[in-house]
Nucleic acid binder design. Structure first.
Lengths: 149, 149
DNA sequence: CTTGACCTTCCCACGGCTGGAAGGACTATC
DNA sequence: GATAGTCCTTCCAGCCGTGGGAAGGTCAAG
């Protein structure tokens, strides 16, 4: 099975498969005499695992650990759970942060007439926090949670 | 005022100030004879504007537009509002996406014993959606929250 | 034999920074 | 006025995960 087929049936692009191999997330694929990468069902299975973990927002480092636990028959489910809970906490932090931004902006947008005149509370707020009645803007910007941008 | 002072009093790092200048977000600063950048209060004011917009999650491209509107005395508040509303929509989309991830993971984590034994529904879910006992968790992921596939 | 689809490696770009190295400029102290 | 220490300058490289594309090799079909 060539990389294209493996990509199609795993949902991971060929580019990404090569990248994952290069960074050591997955072991080097077998090769044909001419240098083409060759994949077996087990490899595709692993790629699908990675894809699903990405869909759940895990970083590649986390996924490396998850793969290790997956392969380890003597693993403890507590270790997996801990990883998951830590990731959930990161997601929740990020959600709160974005929620703060969105709600602040919504308050400002509601106060903005949105007409042909220049005066705008959104710009006033950005200009300076001279509006004591409005909620604070969020301060931290990124805590490492992967989005899908 | 040197770049270090401007950085301190605006909350934007010196590195960032140079970067913003390089990318054209802000105009080139004045220079001393020896090449040091020099900043006036108005420059710091603009940097603070940028900082606050970043805190609200605006991209640098968006901030460029906001700066243009800010400077433009004949602006229409409708234009500012439109920008804000588009950004809010983006934030909300991302929040929903992260929320889906978090809730799926929470369902899985709750089903995981978290003990010394190896069996773990989290890994089972990642392995393949062939888990009839947890259909809700599986479908939450499939519901449109995929980034670029 | 040629066409076209695939594969290979390689580098570049994105956003939004952060860090560091090499070297010049300034200020304070001896 | 030498020296130390802190600031400033530019340039280069990396982070994360991915897409894009060039230049060239390989393979199957017509």
């Amino acid at each position: 099975m060539n990389i294209g087929e493996a990509a199609k049936s795993s949902g991971v692009s060929a580019k990404m498969i090569r990248y994952y191999e290069e960074t050591g997330l997955i072991p080097p694929a077998a090769r044909t005499q001419s240098g083409y990468r060759v994949y077996a069902e087990a490899d595709v299975h692993r790629l699908r695992f990675i894809r699903r973990a990405r869909d759940l927002g895990f970083s590649l480092v986390d996924i490396g650990e998850l793969l290790g636990l997956w392969r380890d028959q003597s693993r403890q489910s507590a270790d997996v759970k801990q990883l998951a809970l830590a990731h959930i906490a990161g997601l929740r932090r990020k959600i709160v942060e974005l929620e703060d931004m969105a709600s602040t902006l919504e308050t400002l947008a509601q106060a903005c007439q949105g007409n042909a005149r220049p005066d705008c509370p959104i710009l006033s707020e950005l200009e300076g926090p001279a509006h004591p009645s409005l909620p604070d803007a969020a301060s931290a910007r990124d805590n490492g949670v992967r989005g899908k941008g």
